[in-house]
Each structure stands twice: as structure tokens, then as C-alpha cells.
Design a binder for these strands. Structure first.
Lengths: 153, 153
DNA sequence: CCGATTGTGGATGTCAATATCCGTTTTAGC
DNA sequence: GCTAAAACGGATATTGACATCCACAATCGG
């Protein structure tokens, strides 16, 4: 249902939120979120273009959230990567009845609206603050303390 | 968001519902719903396999709804063609925390649930009975009376 | 200025969704 | 049984999503 790219983008952004406001390299994000390194860099480029994250090249560079986690909703991220397709006009070519949607597409759009609403309802900060064990992604090593990590890659 | 195949399947099924319980040929369905003829036949085959519609070959044959329009929901059709992907287990490989979803995927699944709910809430009969001008699909020629139609194809 | 690091952009490969075509099978009517 | 109608099934494009690789540009520490 949701594209793989959206899934990847959300993982990356949630991880960045958990480290906010620090920057992280795409290599590290990829390792932590289990996203293919090369592809993640493309996904991140999209996030940069849409303004969700900012990047800096070179030594000590990386990617960071543009805004604080309380100000970014899941919908913001989804729309940045692959906008929710609301149905505004008849998918059949017929212009015959103007802007009014037929009964079927009215329902389909309502379903899209419901999903959009669900995405808009949660900020990254709320995801991180979730009561059910603060495990950011599905596991991401459960980062207990910001201790110097090395190896693994 | 929704695949083209789902869109086509819904158009076909809504059209069949409007003609229910009569059977219609895929050629006619294609013409009325503006779906590519050859591809529609594949989509319909899927609907047959999943039991949403029944078909009969040969002269006078065609495709018809298996059940009356009141008994078929939009969700039934969607799931027959391309099941809504609920998130039951962590998309990352990690089995480490069992069946429990992380905060992020709990939200994503909630969004899927919202959409599923919206689809489940409407039957084909309700789509046809919609108050806003009973235009079945977006237009489908507005079929005023079941008068003998010919030509057009 | 030099070199290591890190994001950027382009070229390319792979695969599933979309779409078309056509021969085969089933069925009804004669 | 013969023929026309119609669904079925397989083979084959075409396209975009997913993914990889690599040369280049920017940036920092010395």
C-alpha cells in the first residue's frame, strides 16, 4: 500500500528525530534503519529538496532535521516523498459533470482523506515519546545510552 | 496511492452492480468504464478467482456479480484484487521484540486501518443509491433507461 | 594547499505493474 | 455437429519503482 520509498524516508526521519538536533551521515542512517545505503541517499536527496531535512557535505557533515520533531508530522514526510493522491476530478476523462465526484470516487477520496488524517495526527516527537517502550524504529539496537559505538560496519 | 488495477476493478464491479443481476461481456464493461479492453479481461479474471464475480463463456455469456450489491463492500473488491497491507510484524527483519509493533509502524498500521474502515463502510448498493445524482461511475453515459443500445463500438 | 570525508548527480541495471495480442476452450443457437 | 460469441491462458512489450555504482563537488582539519 505504502511505497517502499515512503517506508525508508520515515525510518530515516524518525532516526534523525531521535538524534535531533544532531546531524548523521547517510551511511549511519542506513546502518541503523536497515535501508540499502545507495538507495537511501536518493531518498534523502528528495527529503532535502522538499525541505524536511538539511544536509552538509564534507568531514563532520551529514543530514539533520530542518525543524524540531514536534513540528514535523508523519504526513509532512509522506507528502515530501510521495504526496497522498487525493481525488479531485473524475479519473475517467469525463468533464461532463464538472468538479462533482461520482459516488464511487467520492468514497475513494474519503478513504484517502481518512489515511491523510491519520498521518497528520502524529508528530515525530509523539512517535519518539510513545509509551510502549521507547523503541524508536522497530528496534534499531534499542540505543540505551549514547555510548561510542564502532565496528558493525 | 491506489493501484490502477484496483481502480479498474471497482469501476467494473460498480457497473456490474448497476446491471445486477444481469451478466455483461467484458467488451461492454470496458466500453462503459473506459478501461483498456485487454487489460480489463485480466482484472476480471482475478475477480472471478476471488469469487466476487462469476463468468460464463460462449454466446450470451459474460460476467455477473456473485452476490447482490448490498452484500458486497468496496473493501471486498479491493481485497480481492490487491489486499490492504496491514502491518502485523516489524518490516525490519528484527524479531527481537516479538509481535509488538514499534511506535512508527503502529501509526502506519493505524492509517491503513482507517482506510480499510472507510472501504468497509460502503456497499455497492450504497454507492448506487447515492443521493448526489445517481451517476454510477463518473458518468458512464448516465444510462437513463435500459433502452436497447448499440453502435458506439 | 592537501587529503580525507561526505553529499550530489548521472548512468545503469532489475523487476513488478501495466498493457496488448492471439490462439484455445467453452457455450448457445441453429 | 457447425458456427459464432465469449471467457481463458500464455507470450510479449512498455513503463516506472527500486536499487546500485561511480565520478564530482563541497567541506573540514591540518
Amino acid at each position: 500500500m505504502l511505497s517502499q520509498t515512503v517506508e525508508y524516508a520515515l525510518r530515516a526521519v524518525v532516526y534523525l528525530a531521535s538524534e535531533s538536533p544532531a546531524a548523521r551521515t547517510t551511511d549511519e542512517i542506513a546502518a541503523k534503519t536497515l535501508v540499502p545505503k545507495a538507495y537511501l541517499s536518493k531518498v534523502v536527496q528528495g527529503l532535502v529538496r522538499s525541505g524536511i531535512v538539511r544536509s552538509r557535505r564534507g568531514v563532520g557533515g551529514g543530514v539533520m532535521l530542518s525543524e524540531s520533531p514536534e513540528h514535523v508530522t508523519i504526513l509532512d514526510v509522506v507528502n515530501a516523498v510521495e504526496p497522498i493522491q487525493r481525488i479531485h476530478t473524475c479519473p475517467l476523462g469525463l468533464v461532463s459533470h464538472g468538479a462533482r465526484l461520482c459516488p464511487l470516487h467520492k468514497r475513494l477520496d474519503a478513504a484517502m482523506a481518512a489515511m491523510e488524517q491519520a498521518f497528520a495526527a502524529t508528530t515525530l516527537a509523539e512517535v519518539l515519546a510513545d509509551p510502549s517502550k521507547s523503541v524508536p524504529l522497530c528496534d534499531v539496537k534499542a540505543r540505551p545510552k549514547p555510548k561510542k559505538k564502532r565496528a558493525s560496519r
